[in-house]
Design a protein around this nucleic acid. Structure first.
Length: 483
RNA sequence: GCCUCCGUGGUCUAGAGGUAAGGACAUCGCCCUCUCAAGGCGGCAACACGGGUUCAAUUCCCGUCGGAGGUGCCA
């Protein structure tokens, strides 16, 4: 087998969405697994849809995901250029070669006429098919009109009977009646090729051996094969990938606010976690294993773990997995990542951000949860007295009132405001007084945090707040409870 | 409408003629605990439906239904 060459061929129309990321990932993994080459090719043949900066963003995202490509716009390679607009001139000769063979023909029909025919067909409930009107123009006549500068496109001449087919490595044999197929446009009036054409020409020219892409191309691939046959070129192996859906009825799309890869990173998901999660969306290793580094995926990936049915992106599971990744991070690395989020919540809070981060380490499944979890330190939240009621802790507002009265002098007496000494002053005193831990510590924690759920227990929270603030909050709480 | 594809719990999936239909997320409950998480233990929960084929179908075939994709001078 010749060396495997796969490619990721996005059009620069925006951010990298998760379906695209998965396609890129699988193409990358397949190449790596087979000792092959992974290529990035930018398909910018649609001038109107192009978004400035999108190509750069795409490259950045791939880099963040760890998907290094061996050939591409910024890294070069011997099959370049890797941006289709830079290869613009190379497509027309191939299209004309097809015209020579009778597999294509120039078409001078206006968009207006076509649109009209299309809506008419739609109204009558028929599938629109171009009527091959321009096929009847004599070749030299057509040539003359083209040379005189008349606007034209080049269409593929579909056979009117028989079938077109191809074999997909995942979906098997796909066959379509050619009568069903429209004479698709290969070259547009602006001189650019369409995707349908550029993709075939470039995949061939770049020596792509395995084409991986979404199933949205499944039913047009027979047409591409006709092109390969007309040229007499070897066909690549096709592997169409089922779509990634937002829910049962809709594919993931930026337009509806579904998160892109970069959105997730901005929310505080780790790229490794997203890649791991996305790898498992439509592929499984054949056993129950769920955690994979990119390198491990490169080893384990195989086509027969691919699923045929579309899968729904489940953010809850990603979040769980991200939490696992965060917990497994060495503290130093975690702290680096958490720090900006902490600073966002507590600008110039000098006490002990490291300790806070430590307490948050196992609790924040996504980095963006950190600010909300830490906010109570900066400002005491509004809270209702019902927070003091907790059956298992044997606490209610009356108990709380009494407990806070008990605990305040103890805390006031603590000189060395550390977690250890707080703990050592509090716990024995509680026991000695015959009180239950919960009946004292629950109200204490509520009084100084205003929350039922905090990054740490009462002693940790008191420590983080500092003596002055802790006592201030207790006083305030006692005043409220006294009313 | 037409064409193509898909169909195991709410979600991701294992399964490849004979299984108590397995795992993970979510969810619920219990334990642990100075809260919440984490962790441990346990519960609820699926083969879309109808026909075949077969001694035996979640697994093979057909149909129906449901969903998706395509039907662009978009990719």
């Amino acid at each position: 087998m010749p060396q495997v060459r796969t490619r990721f061929a996005p059009s620069p129309t925006g951010y990298l969405h998760l379906g695209g990321l998965r396609t890129a990932l699988y193409a990358y993994l397949f190449a790596r697994k087979n000792g092959g080459v992974f290529i990035l090719r930018i398909e910018d043949t649609d001038q109107e849809r192009e978004v400035a900066g999108a190509e750069e963003q795409l490259r950045k995202s791939l880099k963040l995901a760890g998907l290094t490509y061996d050939e591409g716009p910024d890294v070069g390679g011997s099959y370049g250029p890797y941006v289709q607009s830079e290869r613009k001139g190379s497509y027309a000769p191939y299209a004309w070669a097809l015209v020579e063979k009778g597999a294509a023909y120039p078409c001078f029909c206006t968009k207006g006429r076509l649109d009209q025919a299309r809506t008419e067909a739609e109204r009558e409930g028929r599938t629109f098919k171009y009527d091959k009107r321009c096929m009847s123009i004599a070749k030299n006549e057509a040539r003359r009109r083209v040379e005189s500068g008349e606007k034209h496109v080049i269409r593929q001449n579909m056979p009117t009977d028989g079938a077109a087919s191809f074999d997909d490595a995942l979906f098997g044999h796909i066959e379509i009646d050619t009568a069903q197929l429209d004479d698709m446009v290969l070259m547009k009036a602006d001189g650019f090729p369409t995707y349908n054409f550029a993709n075939v020409v470039d995949d061939h020219l770049m020596g792509i051996t395995h084409v991986m892409r979404g199933t949205e191309y499944l039913s047009s691939t027979p047409k591409y094969n006709l092109l390969y046959e007309a040229f007499g070129w070897d066909k690549p192996v096709y592997i169409h990938l089922p779509l990634v859906m937002a829910d049962a009825t809709r594919k993931l799309s930026k337009r509806y606010g579904d998160p892109s890869f970069e959105d997730l990173l901005n929310e505080g998901y780790l790229p490794e976690a997203v890649v791991n999660y996305i790898a498992l969306l439509g592929w499984n290793p054949g056993d129950d294993r769920e955690f994979f580094t990119l390198g491990e995926l490169e080893q384990s990936f195989s086509l027969d773990g691919l699923s045929k049915s579309p899968s729904i992106f489940d953010k809850a599971k990603l979040t769980w997995m991200n939490g696992e990744y965060i917990r497994r991070l060495p503290f130093g690395r975690y702290y680096e990542l958490a720090k900006p989020w902490l600073e966002k919540a507590l600008p110039d809070w000098g006490r002990d951000p490291k300790r806070l981060a430590e307490l948050l380490h196992g609790r924040a499944e996504v980095l963006n949860r950190i600010p909300e979890m830490a906010a109570f330190i900066k400002a005491m939240p509004e809270y209702g007295l019902e927070l003091y009621t907790h059956k298992k802790m044997k606490s209610d507002p009356a108990v709380a009132r009494e407990s806070l009265a008990f605990v305040e002098p103890i805390l006031r007496a603590v000189e060395d405001w550390t977690e250890a000494s707080l703990h050592d002053s509090l716990m024995p005193a509680i026991t000695a007084s015959g009180r239950k831990n919960g009946a004292v510590l629950w109200p204490l924690r509520v009084a100084i945090s205003g929350l039922t759920s905090t990054p740490g227990g009462a002693t940790e929270i008191a420590y983080l707040l500092g003596k002055t603030e802790t006592l201030r909050r207790i006083t305030a709480a006692r005043e409220r409870l006294a009313l």
